[in-house]
Design a protein around this nucleic acid. Structure first.
Lengths: 407, 407
DNA sequence: ATTAGTTCGTCAGGAGAGCGAACTAATGTC
DNA sequence: GACATTAGTTCGCTCTCCTGACGAACTAAT
């Protein structure tokens, strides 16, 4: 432990506080900022002045109506910097470009390159460049990109492990490859973890500091948000409930590639159950529609599925005691699912948590990736404890982003 | 969010750093402290001088032998303050008095008062006073007491919920009652959480920042240590795996008082299984002894039990991805258990964690309580953000503890 | 005994950051 | 037009830490 304490000079902490408040609560006067952050007027003054000089914030207008002198209000300068969020799905690739205030400027999606590895990197690079051009954003103003992808990201090697669904990424230095191609800082994380951040930022778990996100779809997975942060466990594999051995007979071998739970509760398992009953192969959506239409076989499959999920959720509750469980993913986002689940869940769980359907649906990971990228950018910009080196590479000879002076 | 940032004046952070270093690494010279903390010599000088003036640290000796001027070394003044740790078990009450450096000065244990409630408080009070007298410690020097107890502590009401094993505590303001009786600050937490802290401080999980502690004994419970802190969930009920519904048929009603898992995997369940097989009632220890002696029925019971535990542990692994799982409690502390478990566990879990037997055994909660009390005392003393008011109540007109001046 | 080299401890000066209080400026209300 | 109210600025002060210089104490070599 080489503890060293005033790592972050107080000023950086304060700056970051001001920026956060400004991002969260739109236009604010300096006095308002002072009240919210607890800093004094003068300190806020200095900070705002500096941020304005550096181009990060700008005057927004003046307050109106009340007695007393009118205040000048400030807001983040939206064009000062941008970030990219990417959701690398097994089938779909979603990319969004957002300004520093968190407004999405442009976005796109495409089928994921099936040829894998380098081809996916190329595809991502092309999509990002395309977005920037569409929005007229000089490439150098893009500060950070964040990527959500299935699998367990090993931050030491930069590899992505346990990602059977995306072909050809296993064993590659994904982090390095993407950083080199894009030319700026990147952040990589599990897509479910990204979804957690997304749901908390702009989804069903706002302001919630203890919740779990359970993704039901192609696979089954969980993201854990506890005490105000995503928890990843020792190797980044926390929440990999697909490997939890408590649905089938766990002592039976086989089923160890995708994990026993995943086997049964993924879209495939769902469809397989229906097929076993009817002889007809149908995707989950169809089965749900038929259940709604009153078909007995469909109802039976859904009922069995829902019971298993209720079992999983009550186990999650016993283990983690979340305030809320958000259910998402391809199947989980179906609005009727939670309704069907609840009675079973209530019967099983001792201290019940609230259960909600994902508010962001298929975009959860993407939104989360944006949030992570924004957060990373802000930390780098306003609380860096190392000398700042804004990467200014590759194309776009546009105006330089305002450089943050660091003494 | 009423964020306010320089809450802890920098000096307090620095002071705390110095104290921590001094606690950890025995006698140190000022220059050494400076090197370790990263503070400058002068800053350390000022802090040490102040701490010495206030009686918290004292000169220890001088360095010897090397070239150059000899340095004066300092260490914590052990008698400057004391804390009490208490483990309120269903059957046993354990109490220990420790100095600020973490050395246990005296300790005692007794059968828990079965008349419950106020009688237990009286008992605790009497034991604590007795310990202080034995050790010749004036009561006013005891800064904090920490209590580990079964059940879920509700920090809002001060009540202890879900504590069926300790009679007569339910529905009482335990926190308030204990504080009033002892006359100083107290901390209350679940006994398993205390054990977590204990195992990490001086047990099997030292230096480990992601681990789980699974207690197998009178009941079954888990404590979660993730990213460097105990995680309690939204209502303090995280880790209550006794309520996880995945061993018996979970959809069968009944079994909802103690939780389905607890029903089967507690000492009682264990003995009941043996009784069902042999017609003879025997406590778990006896069954284990007979298993070691080669009795088939005992072997069968142990085998079944061990398989269930392996199942639980592999689920824990899938959910939390710990680096390590420490198995403790009355049954769990038996050294042979982990050996029997391991093969099953390895077969079930995808990313295996290390599994160790508790190093502290029955004392885990007690040691943890001491650690928590110490930690609380240090924070109050050296990083308090509110004006310090050392409680100086009741008996013992001994020398006053050195008052920490706070401007 | 003298000298060199090393480490410890203190002092002085200065920089970064924050705060309270006093003061000026604008604006609405009676 | 007097007054209350709010916004913004300036000044002086405090806290805290750091750097650099320097003397003190000590070991090792000559």
């Amino acid at each position: 432990m080489t503890s060293s304490y005033p790592l972050q000079s107080t000023r950086q902490l304060s700056s970051q506080a001001v920026v956060e408040v400004l991002l969260r609560e739109a236009p604010l006067s300096r006095v308002q900022i002072a009240k919210i952050t607890g800093l004094s007027k003068q300190t806020v003054n200095e900070i705002v002045r500096q941020l304005e000089a550096e181009g990060w914030v700008s005057e927004h207008g003046t307050s109106q109506g009340d007695v007393g002198r009118r205040a000048v209000t400030y807001s983040m300068q939206p064009g000062a910097g941008f970030v990219i969020g990417v959701d690398v799905g097994a089938t779909k690739l979603r990319v969004a470009l957002s300004d520093l205030a968190g407004s999405v400027v442009s976005q796109a999606e495409d089928a994921t390159e099936l040829r894998g590895g380098p081809h996916v990197f190329d595809q991502i690079h092309a999509m990002c460049v395309g977005l920037a051009e569409d929005a007229g954003v000089p490439w150098a103003r893009i500060l950070t990109s964040a990527f959500g992808s299935p699998g367990v990201f090993n931050s030491e090697t930069g590899h992505l492990d346990l990602a059977p669904n995306v072909p050809g990424l296993e064993g590659l230095d994904v982090a390095g490859a993407l950083r080199d191609r894009l030319g700026h800082e990147i952040v990589l994380d599990n897509d479910v973890n990204m979804a957690v951040v997304g749901e908390r930022w702009r989804g069903a778990a706002r302001e919630c500091s203890n919740f779990a996100f359970v993704a039901l779809g192609t696979g089954i997975g969980m993201g854990i948000y506890m005490d105000g942060a995503v928890r990843r466990g020792a190797h980044g594999a926390a929440g990999e409930i697909g490997y939890a051995p408590f649905v089938n007979d766990p002592f039976q071998p086989s089923l160890h590639r995708h994990g026993p739970l995943e086997e049964k509760l993924s879209s495939q398992g769902f469809s397989a159950a229906y097929e076993a009953l009817t002889g007809e192969h149908a995707p989950p959506e169809t089965v749900f529609e038929r259940q709604a239409a009153g078909e007995p076989a469909a109802a039976q499959v859904v009922e069995a599925y829902v019971r298993q999920i209720a079992l999983v959720l009550s186990t999650v509750t016993a283990f983690l005691d979340p305030e809320l469980i958000v259910v998402g993913g391809g199947i989980g986002s179906r609005p009727e699912l939670v309704g069907e689940l609840l009675p079973h869940y209530r019967r099983l769980a001792a201290n019940t948590a609230e259960i909600r359907t994902s508010a962001l649906g298929a975009r959860a990971s993407l939104v989360g990736a944006i949030a992570v990228a924004l957060n990373h950018a802000h930390t780098r910009l306003f609380a860096a404890d190392v000398p700042q080196k804004l990467p200014l590479p590759t194309p776009g000879a546009g105006a330089e982003p305002p450089a943050r002076s660091v003494r």
